[in-house]
């Protein structure tokens, strides 16, 4: 069975294979079980959620939790569809802007020589080294100075300049876009703008799909926190956190919501998995 799983190599012993395979199975169980629990809990009736000893799988699946969720939704202050709209709007505009601006910047950073490009890229790498939470106070002050507090702009615009996306895109372009192709296009009289859209962007399709996934995941789960206080500007994750404040009494509803929230990023990843792995292959940092 295992021989079928992989190509045979001299450096492999059967004992080692069995040991490593066992570790893999144990770890797979560790990652999968909580996710499976989210799914089964979402379909458990109340009497199965609170039972001693606790039962892992659902016996009599029901849609009660999803119905309860829609009751909670319709009782909220503002129509629940508003939260969904906000999150979708934020995720789509934020992702689109990020992919375009990060690619434009990555293009010149990887293919043009101009003063300041090294310093700029070094700063971007440095910004990967700390969590953005460090900047929450000055960012709030800047937002309130510009007057973006309490609007989705405060969440969208900074997302356009996420440094991880620029980093991945620049490394990918450096390896994947041949200079000779760009020179040939230049000799033919193509403008930089045209070169960027018609030559570079089609070649780096795997990378922009990756950037889309990373940006979308982050925006989809974004809790507006300090920037937004009007209820009608808040996002889905915020609404869900509110539902969760209900504590264990809303156990089943919580599982139902988690299930709905996690399906979207996971499905998007499944569809683009190979592209993401291809992009990550060029991401290394050389001395």
């Amino acid at each position: 069975m295992k021989i079928k799983l992989r190509s045979k190599r001299v450096s492999r012993s059967l004992g080692g294979d069995i040991a490593l395979f066992t570790i893999l199975l144990i770890f797979a169980a560790f990652t999968a079980l909580p996710l499976v629990l989210v799914i089964t809990n979402a379909f458990k009736p109340l009497n199965e959620l609170f039972i001693f000893p606790p039962r892992f799988f659902v016996r009599n699946p029901t849609l009660d939790n999803f119905k309860a969720l829609s009751v909670v939704m319709s009782n909220s202050w503002i129509p629940f569809s508003r939260y969904i709209f906000n999150t979708l709007f934020l995720s789509i505009i934020g992702t689109a802007g990020h992919v375009i601006f990060a690619s434009m910047a990555a293009y010149v950073l990887s293919k043009h020589r101009f003063p300041g490009r090294r310093v700029f890229f070094a700063t971007v790498v440095l910004s990967l080294m700390f969590a953005p939470e460090v900047l929450s106070i000055p960012n709030y002050l800047i937002m309130s100075k510009i007057g973006w507090v309490d609007s989705l702009t405060a969440l969208i615009i900074p997302a356009w300049a996420m440094s991880l996306g620029l980093f991945l895109m620049k490394q990918f372009m450096e390896t994947m876009v041949p200079d000779s192709l760009l020179e040939a296009a230049k000799i033919d009289g193509a403008s930089e703008w045209r070169i960027f859209w018609q030559i570079v962007m089609p070649i780096v399709k795997p990378a922009w799909l990756t950037l889309m996934i990373l940006a979308f995941q982050r925006l989809w789960q974004m809790v507006p926190g300090q920037y937004i206080y009007s209820e009608e500007m808040k996002t889905l994750s915020y609404a869900i956190n509110q539902i969760m404040q209900g504590g264990r009494a809303r156990e089943g509803v919580m599982a139902a919501v988690s299930l709905l929230m996690m399906i979207v990023p996971i499905v998007i990843f499944v569809v683009n998995q190979s592209k993401v792995v291809e992009t990550m292959g060029t991401s290394g940092i050389k001395d």
Partner: peptide, 28 residues
């Protein structure tokens, strides 16, 4: 790959651990 990567993108799903480690006898 999908299975191992999923928890990191599953958003609020990690809250399920509060059920698993719940302090009452109903916790798993």
């Amino acid at each position: 790959t999908l299975l191992f990567y999923a928890p990191s993108i599953a958003g609020n799903a990690f809250v399920i651990w509060t059920t698993i480690f719940s302090g009452d006898a109903y916790g798993y």
